[in-house]
């Protein structure tokens, strides 16, 4: 018996190792592929020179790599990781495999604020500055998040929270639709573009800020993996183990919100990554242990978004697609396939 146990343990450890190794390798491949592809194709050797500082600082390739592609790659990796991690968190809370990080109404809040700002500002400027977009959508996200947190402490169970999140979404959408009546065509186009998501506005500034938010949030999530595992076995059970459920709920909603708010602010509400990627990780790792799922979701989300961004840039080049076009086209079939194949006795 004990020998069998050890075999299983080592088989699982092997699987986990392989999955993480593949994620890291794919991350590198996706990074390099992204660096060399684009309207200007840069050979690998030149990329190596440029990255190691030996390249010609005045060359086009140098600026393309350092000013455009590298920040964009990093941003898509960090936000992709953040998005799928927040998806994993939200699925853990709701014990609902098709919950996505934006069900709490965060993206709708962001869009409402953005619509308001766009319409207000377009009277003053001819074009809306990127920083204003980021600031407005972040503020909107945080506002909806605060409302959700206010309710988190009061509701008996997390499914009521799901309903509250949806209602917040509806209210925000209603206000947004109202505002759109007063918008001009270019505002509407901007808003529509934003709501489909894009990494095209990436800059070192946005990379810096999102790293400063996302990385500490990642470690905070990791630090609560043990409590999350207990929570996944039932709130009552977790309480009997000494987990402070109310505090854990608020904390996790806060972390989910912060992660998805950064995504909404810097790249718009990218769809499906938060739903599909945690599923892919579960299937590959064959476990739901948060301690493994947290880093796996993050890495896999980073790879997924980098590849999707590459596809968005290259498929119909020079026309760039929005990121959600690609993530939905790939993510939705994956979700359907997972729903059909997953084993489940609880939810049907």
């Amino acid at each position: 018996m004990s020998a069998g146990r050890n075999n299983t343990n080592s088989r699982n450890a092997m699987r986990t190792g392989m999955v993480f190794l593949s994620f890291v390798l794919l991350l590198i491949v996706a990074g390099i592929w992204n660096l060399r592809s684009g309207s200007v194709r840069i050979p690998l050797g030149e990329i190596a020179d440029i990255l190691s500082g030996r390249g010609e600082p005045d060359s086009t390739a140098y600026s393309v790599i350092w000013k455009i592609r590298l920040p964009r790659i990093l941003l898509s990796a960090v936000l992709g990781g953040a998005l799928s991690l927040s998806g994993f968190l939200i699925q853990t809370f709701f014990r609902n495999p098709i919950a996505g990080p934006f069900v709490l109404g965060i993206s709708s809040g962001a869009k409402m604020f953005l619509a308001f700002t766009t319409i207000a500002v377009s009277g003053l400027f001819s074009d809306m500055p990127v920083s204003a977009t980021v600031a407005a959508s972040f503020a909107g996200s945080v506002l909806s998040l605060l409302i959700v947190i206010l309710f988190t402490g009061r509701v008996r169970n997390m499914s009521s929270l799901l309903v509250i999140g949806m209602m917040i979404s509806y209210i925000c959408s209603a206000v947004t639709d109202l505002l759109i009546n007063f918008a001009n065509d270019s505002d509407i186009i901007n808003l529509t573009h934003w709501s489909m998501g894009s990494f095209s506005a990436a800059s070192w500034q946005s990379v810096r800020i999102s790293v400063l938010i996302v990385i500490p949030a990642f470690f905070a999530v990791l630090a609560f993996s043990k409590q999350m595992e207990a929570y996944s076995l039932g709130e009552g059970y977790a309480m009997s183990l000494g987990v402070d459920i109310k505090a854990l709920r608020v904390l996790l909603v806060l972390l989910t919100g912060v992660l998805s708010a950064s995504v909404a602010a810097f790249a718009g509400p990218i769809s499906f990554v938060g739903i599909a990627v945690p599923h892919i990780c579960r299937m590959l790792l064959k476990t739901e242990k948060p301690i493994l799922m947290i880093p796996a979701s993050f890495l896999c989300g980073a790879v997924f978004c980098m590849m999707c961004d590459l596809a968005a840039r290259m498929l119909f080049s020079p026309t760039e697609l929005s990121i959600s076009t690609v993530t939905s086209a790939i993510g939705a079939p994956i979700v359907i396939w997972l729903m059909l194949t997953r084993r489940n006795r609880n939810g049907g």
Partner: peptide, 20 residues
Amino acid sequence: GSEIAKKMAVVLTERIRPDL
């Protein structure tokens, strides 16, 4: 909480069976 958990275990009717 953890002092109590070391003394008392609880099996209540919450029947959650996580996948995987």
